[in-house]
Design a protein around this nucleic acid. Sequence first.
DNA 1: ACGCGCAAATGGACTAGACCACTTTGGGCC
DNA 2: GGCCCAAAGTGGTCTAGTCCATTTGCGCGT
Lengths: 243, 243
Amino acid sequence: MVVAVSERAPREPKYYLVKRHLLDLIGSLPPGSLVPTERILTLELGTSRTTVRRALSELVGEGRLVRRQGSGTYVAEPKISWPLRMTSFTEQAAEAGYTVTTKLLDAGRQRADEEVAARLNLKVGASVFVIERLRLVNGAAMAVELSQLSAARFPGLVTKLKREPSLYRVLAEFYDSAPVEADETIETAAASPRKAELLDTDTGAPMLVLSRHSFDASGAPIEWVRSWYRGDRYTFVARLTAR
Amino acid sequence: MVVAVSERAPREPKYYLVKRHLLDLIGSLPPGSLVPTERILTLELGTSRTTVRRALSELVGEGRLVRRQGSGTYVAEPKISWPLRMTSFTEQAAEAGYTVTTKLLDAGRQRADEEVAARLNLKVGASVFVIERLRLVNGAAMAVELSQLSAARFPGLVTKLKREPSLYRVLAEFYDSAPVEADETIETAAASPRKAELLDTDTGAPMLVLSRHSFDASGAPIEWVRSWYRGDRYTFVARLTAR
DNA sequence: ACGCGCAAATGGACTAGACCACTTTGGGCC
DNA sequence: GGCCCAAAGTGGTCTAGTCCATTTGCGCGT
């Protein structure tokens, strides 16, 4: 195979030069350090504020910088790893040594649209519990989670959830039901204004979206969950073994 | 103007209103449809082009729209799922029914920096093979992959790779070495100009970065690989089982 | 009928500036 | 000494415009 010579050098946008300049700077400073203000960078680098802000925004999205309105821009802490595993959220966190809390944002009953009907093996219009929760680790918002389950299959679920926050424990105790298999998908998205506020970040910030479609031992779907994590703060980790 | 009292209503930026307008539009159109031009949207929605472009950029980053300079903006095809599994890239693709090719971009020898030395259990400055490849599925660029392996442990690797493109097959045949375990991490990043060009996308576009740190049966590290996938086009899928 | 070249239209990058929301700070007051 | 509040400084949003690169399509010439 011949190694192709790229005829066209990728032309570098001006904002990317600013970004590289900032990356150098970040590399030489400890987390928490103050970085020059946007207006100062504008003068130093001879560009417009828009261009500086584009570079800053990418670095914020990559978790290298943190901006605080009215205060300044700072070098960020390293990202946090989060394991992808079959156990429940609460157990995962405990294993990793984190203190986890869950805040119930909303829990109600809705009619299944086409997508959720297909996922839960229901008819369109069937009754579905929609549970929205905020996951916090050591007090800091980590993810917004939207769970959907068949209301017919899990009667009274919402009431029970208000006493026992672990969904998987409720399923096991009251419905003798446990997910034994799941398909997870991971993708990127931009934060909506609502999710941005819940997660204390900016609208449009890059996020990791983890969807889980889980099944019981008989292969019947139990729940369909989507979780939105801040992409600038978390990385997912999975341990794979051959065979 | 009367300011709403709602204590903490997430204030919606104007660009997000444009985004929702476009999402409605996208929902009613089949993939490939032409969407109004930026200048027309500017007039229709009474905003500046910058604001329209911010909304468009997010939608492009989420894989809902495709922009082609000089031509127009189009509704995008759905994303493609890509499995996370322990087998080699080439095998994965074959199983999924895709035709896969690999283009060797660069292969050479470098001195280990601190990070790669730690990953491969070497001393800083030890010789390391750095192999950069472009992965294509059905002819379209999918990912840029950067593999790093100990040169002392795999002498002549680069030469062999030029005849047999599957790295895992080369490792098995010539070095009797196979990864049986791996840690994979997934995070988001923005495309550099170089990667953007290789992947036929825009600088700054959101990407999924998959890092794999793999080990042989004795627990010794074999390789450290990072792959950059277009976040607007791919989602990762993993199948998890309890126990 | 065909093809070529050029003009129009598209998205891409950047500028300069206005105004707003929020935080910090320091001076004046008690 | 401590408190409060105004001012200054920070990032956040948006505007209106320029110039560029690429694509498309039309009209002209052959």
